[in-house]
């Protein structure tokens, strides 16, 4: 392998955004992607558990209703759509920040958080509806697995909302400037990841019919 040239940070001739790293890419962003790779295994485990258990109703006459019996697909479609669109607003927030348009950045950040909140609200509504109809967390393996999977995802979305709101506050205080695009980008990566996980869940858990 060819001998590498030494990046000499002392020269500062190109004011790169990043410090010299071996690969030239940002530590933080690499860490985020690495972490997301790991998250695939986490959600994979929960999704597989649900798939395995989705028709396990448990014995006896009680507690045998399972989530697939009472899915409200039109409702979930709307909330899935909302979450999907929040990815758009997220990427627009980043784009606005790159342009230096702070007002637009805040607006998009806020709308992303709002859309996320609507999604969470929908999930809370769905959960309470399920429980009202006798599909509670403790009733049978199918419902335990369903609530654990979607609840886990919901917690991820909620954390994302917290991050977005923190960015919003930082922006309000004037601390979010174009040089912070990577920060927003990284929050965005997390947010989009949560979105793609839902794309998967929506199809595999909700839409694919159970025989």
């Amino acid at each position: 392998m060819a001998t590498a040239t030494i990046d000499s940070p002392d020269t500062h001739d190109d004011h790169d955004e990043h410090h010299a790293t071996s690969t030239g890419i940002s530590n933080t962003k690499l860490a985020m992607w690495t972490f997301l790779g790991s998250e695939c295994l986490l959600f994979g485990g929960l999704i597989s558990t649900y798939l395995l258990y989705k028709t396990r109703r448990g014995p006896g006459p009680d507690n045998t209703a399972i989530p697939t019996d009472i899915f409200d697909i039109p409702f979930t479609s709307v909330s899935s759509f909302v979450l999907l669109m929040s990815s758009l607003t997220m990427v627009l927030a980043l784009s606005a920040l790159t342009r230096g348009d702070n007002a637009a950045t805040r607006a998009w950040l806020l709308s992303t958080a709002m859309l996320g909140s609507v999604f969470i609200g929908g999930q809370v509504y769905e959960f309470t509806g399920f429980i009202r109809e006798g599909v509670g967390f403790t009733h049978n393996p199918a419902s335990s697995a369903f609530f654990t999977l979607t609840g886990f995802h919901g917690v991820h979305v909620s954390l994302g909302i917290l991050m977005l709101m923190s960015l919003y506050v930082a922006s309000k205080q004037g601390k979010l400037t174009p040089k912070h695009t990577e920060t927003v980008e990284i929050v965005g990566l997390y947010w989009h990841f949560v979105d793609v996980v839902w794309i998967f869940i929506f199809t595999v858990i909700y839409l694919i019919p159970v025989d």
Binding site: I25, L30, W33, L36, G37, S38, C40, L41
Partner: peptide, 10 residues
């Protein structure tokens, strides 16, 4: 590299 990290997990 970013994509590879993610795709590896995926």
């Amino acid at each position: 590299i970013f994509g590879r990290m993610f795709v590896a997990g995926l």
